[in-house]
Nucleic acid binder design. Structure first.
Lengths: 333, 333
DNA sequence: TTGTACGCGTTATCAT
DNA sequence: ATGATAACGCGTACAA
């Protein structure tokens, strides 16, 4: 590969001058600049990033931590991040984490050996070791979709409880009283959304029936299906279900369909997230919209601004959510 | 950050010795090795990858090129790749490409400045410049889901035409004669699948009606919906539709549902890919299964073996496909 | 078995 | 305005 020295030699200047031209530094005689540039172009020379980040101690790379089996919501989130990160001149390096202590350990090792300029988490880690390392290293960071109270990291997410309450309330206002819940045990938001559901019920004087609630081990359609089957076998009166995520809702609708129960005529279903595919389910899913795109942008901004200014700014950025009315909820008028 | 020199000093040895210990090189006195190792552990020292790849001219990183708005099929594919790549000790670096000449150019520039050990394409580029660069550089490469005849690169994909013919044939065998097609114009596979559809029709003496075929600009559900609407407005007799991808099929089913046409009672729909979500549509999608997981593994193997052996091995790995019978196709008995 | 010296490609500092 | 030199952290000949 041709290096900066080759270019310097061919242009009859020193490597420093070439470097100055390439990085648009200081004053270089225009004639010299043109000469260098033309040779660069002719030779198709490009700076070696490895060498650059070695001396600069920067990699122009932001890490994004995401579950290995990321769902469609996270997929949209990180597409958004990658977009804005690139706009600001950063590359994105993904770290896929599996659901195990070992995987988190391995990640920490990798993190230490990597030269990152910043990092964004779309995935809540359990072991605090990683967060500790980041804090000690002073690495610019942003948490997306959750918070970590023990650490003073900026976070962007929605008002989880209020959003879940919004969904539940929507059901209540349409006359539903026997409302099921499908949520997950992992991650903060699963419990927070359950809490929102409880609050909405309570606010309307509806008793909270534990038999109407299930916690599934994951947040994907398969889990939603099994959760709904569980609810169904309990044979309780139930006219509506709030699924803590859209993917859960999709699985729930499927279970209903397989049992010959019509949605929304017999049972209404509402989700939370508003992922792309929710427009395309039959019936189309009524849900609560997280501003995914904006949240991705905000996360990117948080980290990039931190890097640019040299210090952290805001602590928490809360996004509000809105109901998206489609076809999966019926009014019990 | 603590460097190899710090460890050396603390252990009372030279940096080279530490390096030898870390890389399990040659003979190092066991006592010395233990001492070094314990200090490494104590200090939580990890090698600096940037410096390593600078001197080694290797990065232990495989690039994966993927469309910026990758679909669920590609998502599963690259999850599989990342899994196997990691198993073989490689990191994965993603390159998201947008649908434009400029994006491909930008990618080429990045590619040149990056130190990659190999690269996998899940996305067909138009400009040959990138392929040329890779060939000249002798970079180990694998193409996944397509081939590039002009270049001698190993490729893994399914028998596109045969698979499309399989889907069409499945419809024909169930008594369908007026079979619509929704496919896309971009990428080789769109045309190949169209060709398979034509062949199957021809093999059964069914005339190919251009009015029954639409080409949409993308392969996602939204495109599938608009494609189906187009077909519907032509008001031709049509009892079944072959959608070139599952996502297209999902959109097509949606359009049918919105028009009050029941699937499969009035119109049958078959897809191709068998992505995860296809189990959860209503009705569940009958489709042709690509062995996504295995294809991801094979792509990873192709590149890793090339690196290990120093030269390319197989040229093309063809995977066969199978029908997955679910609920979206009806027999016209 | 271990240490010394050099080089990888680049940028920053300091001369000139 | 430009060049020489050192430095980044590591691996590897080669010397000891």
């Amino acid at each position: 590969m041709t290096s900066i020295k080759d270019i310097a030699r061919l242009a009859g200047v020193s490597p420093s001058t070439v470097s100055r031209v390439l990085n648009e530094r200081e004053y270089v005689r225009d004639e010299v600049r043109q000469r260098v540039l033309s040779i660069v172009k002719e030779k198709g020379y490009v700076q070696n990033n490895v060498a650059r980040s070695m001396v600069l101690k920067r990699s122009f790379t932001i890490g994004v931590v995401i579950p290995h089996l990321f769902n469609m919501f996270q997929r949209q989130l990180f597409a958004s991040m990658e977009f804005f990160l690139e706009q600001r001149g950063y590359k994105t390096q993904f770290f896929f984490i599996r659901w195990s202590e070992a995987s988190e350990q391995a990640f920490l090792r990798r993190l230490k050996s990597e030269t990152l300029d910043g990092i964004i988490f779309i995935h809540e880690l359990y072991s605090p070791a990683v967060y500790q390392h980041i804090q000690e290293r002073g690495l610019p960071v942003a948490l997306c979709t959750f918070e970590k109270d023990q650490f003073d990291f900026p976070a962007v997410h929605i008002e989880e409880e209020a959003s879940a309450a919004l969904a539940t309330e929507y059901l209540i206002q349409r006359g539903h009283r026997n409302i099921g819940l499908i949520t997950g045990g992992h991650f903060s938001f699963g419990k927070q959304r359950e809490e929102g559901y409880r609050q909405a019920l309570k606010a309307h004087g509806i008793p909270c029936n534990p038999e109407l609630m299930v916690r599934v081990p994951s947040y994907n359609p398969e889990a939603g299906r099994s959760g709904m089957i569980t609810l169904l076998t309990r044979k309780l009166p139930m006219t509506a279900v709030f699924a803590a995520t859209d993917e859960l809702a999709i699985g729930a609708i499927k279970a209903l369909y397989d049992s010959g129960i019509r949605v929304p005529e017999e049972v209404s279903v509402i989700g939370l997230d508003d992922i792309d595919i929710s427009t395309f389910t039959t019936p189309a899913l009524t849900t609560v919209r997280q501003p995914i795109f904006e949240m991705g942008k905000k996360s990117a901004d948080l980290v990039c601004d931190w890097i640019a200014r040299g210090h952290m700014q805001e602590k928490v950025e809360l996004f509000s959510t809105t109901i998206v009315e489609r076809e999966s909820v019926r009014s019990l008028a």
